[in-house]
Computed example of a mutant assay.
Amino acid sequence: MNPLNKIRKEGQSIWLDLLDREIMNSGKLQSLIDNDDLGGLTSNPSIFEKAISGSSDYNEDIANFSKEEDDNAIIFFDMAIKDIQRAADMFKPVFDKTNGKDGFVSLEVSPLLARNTVGTIKQVRELWKKVDRKNVMIKIPGTEEGLPAIRECLSEGININITLLFGLPRYREITEAFMGGLEDRLKEGEPINNVASVASFFLSRIDVMVDPMLKKKRADDLVGEVAIASAKKAYQIYLEMISSDRFKKLEANGAQRQRVLWASTSSKDPAFSDVKYVEPLIGKDTINTLPMDTIDAFRDHGKVTETITQDIDHARKVMNDLKAGGIDINEITQKLEDEGIEKFKDAYDKLLKSIDSQKYKKRLEK
C-alpha cells in the first residue's frame, strides 16, 4: 500500500484537480482509480482552458458543434459535459462501492455568474439536467450571491460543490445554506439521503498573499502557517455543525455530511515541502484535491497520520498573532475571493477565444 491508499483509512479521500482527454485516453486516470484509490475529480475554467487551448483533442468537437451552434459558451459547455460524463462513468464503480459517498466529478458554472444568484440557479439546473449523472457535483462559488443559490439547488436535490471558499465567516454561512437547503427539501417531502455536497477551501493562495506581508513585519514565525491554521479552524466549525441538534435531525432523516475539501494544495513557494498542504490536513470526512505533481509527490514520500485535529491551540495562536500584527484575515480572504473570480473569468475568456480561433481556422480551410 502506498500513502495514497493508506490515507483513505484515515477517512480522507484524494481527488484529482485535473480533467482533460489525454488523461482519460491514455489510461492514466483509470490507473489512478485502480491503483491509488483516487476518489474523485474536479474541474474549473482554468483546467478546461489549458485542456482546450493546449491540445488538438477538442478540434473535431469544435468543428462539429459549431455546425449547429455559433455561441462559443454553449460549444464549450457541450464539450465540457461530454468530458464530465465520461469521467463520471469511470468513477461510477467508486460511487457504487462507497454507497454514493465518493466517486464524484465536478463541473463549474460560468465564472461570469459569480455575482448573479438567479443566473447561477438557472445554469445549475441546466447543467445538472444535461449531465444526467448521479455522481456529478455542480460547482457554485462561495460568494455572498452564491449562498441563496446553494440553498435553492440543494433543496432541489442537486449535488453541489461550493468553490472559491477562503474565509471562515463565509464558511459558517455556507453551513447554514447547506442545512437550510436540506431542511427545505424535507419540508417538501423529498428524500435527502442522496444529496451530496462539499465545501472547498482554497489554501495555498492564502499564504501566497499573506506571507509577503508577514516578512515585511519580520513575523517569520508565521510565514507558511496561516493557510493550514485557517483550515484547522474550518474543520472545527465542521465538527460543530455535525454535532449540532439541527444537523443531527437531518442526519436522522438520512442526510450526508457536507465534507470539507482542501483545494489549491500545490506548494507555490519552493522553500516549502511539496506535500505541505497534504500531510497536516488528514482526517475524517475530508477530501484533498491535488494536482498531478502533488499526487506523485505524496505517493512517493507522503506520511499518513490523522493530523487535522492536532495542534489546534497552535492554529488559534497563529490566527491571533496575525490579528495582533495588524493583518485582517477577513480582508485578505475577501480580496482572494474577488481575485479568484477574476482569474477564472480571464481563463474563461481565453477559453472562448481559443474556441473562436479554432472555428476561424476551419472556415479558412473551407
Score class of each variant (00 low, 15 high):
352 L>W: 11
24 M>P: 03
296 D>G: 03
69 E>Q: 14
186 L>T: 07
163 T>Q: 07
212 P>C: 12
119 G>S: 11
361 K>W: 08
41 L>T: 05
106 S>V: 05
192 I>T: 10
221 D>N: 12
138 I>K: 04
225 E>G: 03
22 E>F: 11
316 R>H: 13
217 K>E: 06
103 G>E: 00
198 V>Q: 05
3 P>C: 08
248 K>L: 15
277 Y>A: 02
163 T>H: 01
240 E>K: 15
101 K>Y: 14
36 D>K: 07
33 I>P: 01
137 M>V: 11
279 E>G: 12
300 D>K: 14
195 V>Q: 06
77 F>L: 05
178 F>T: 04
267 S>L: 08
154 L>D: 02
313 D>L: 15
66 S>P: 13
316 R>W: 11
227 A>E: 03
236 Q>G: 09
43 S>R: 01
200 S>I: 01
306 E>T: 15
185 R>W: 04
6 K>R: 14
220 D>P: 09
310 Q>D: 13
121 I>S: 09
295 I>F: 04
147 L>K: 12
116 N>I: 01
334 Q>L: 13
133 R>Y: 00
306 E>I: 15
278 V>D: 01
121 I>E: 06
262 W>M: 05
225 E>A: 13
120 T>P: 02
359 K>E: 01
300 D>P: 02
210 V>Y: 06
186 L>R: 07
106 S>D: 07
45 P>N: 02
57 D>N: 13
299 R>N: 09
78 D>W: 12
32 L>G: 08
318 V>S: 07
250 L>A: 13
166 F>A: 06
235 Y>W: 03
290 L>Y: 00
149 A>K: 02
257 R>S: 09
345 K>M: 10
133 R>T: 02
54 G>Y: 11
158 I>K: 09
221 D>K: 13
282 I>P: 00
360 Y>H: 13
352 L>D: 10
222 L>I: 11
355 I>Y: 04
156 E>T: 01
337 E>T: 08
283 G>P: 06
291 P>Q: 04
86 R>V: 14
129 K>H: 15
126 E>W: 04
113 L>K: 10
308 I>S: 08
33 I>V: 12
52 I>H: 12
71 D>S: 12
355 I>F: 05
77 F>H: 06
340 G>P: 06
188 E>V: 09
152 E>Q: 10
251 E>V: 11
11 G>I: 07
353 K>G: 10
302 G>N: 03
54 G>D: 12
290 L>E: 02
364 L>F: 13
16 L>G: 06
42 T>F: 02
25 N>S: 11
346 D>K: 12
39 G>L: 00
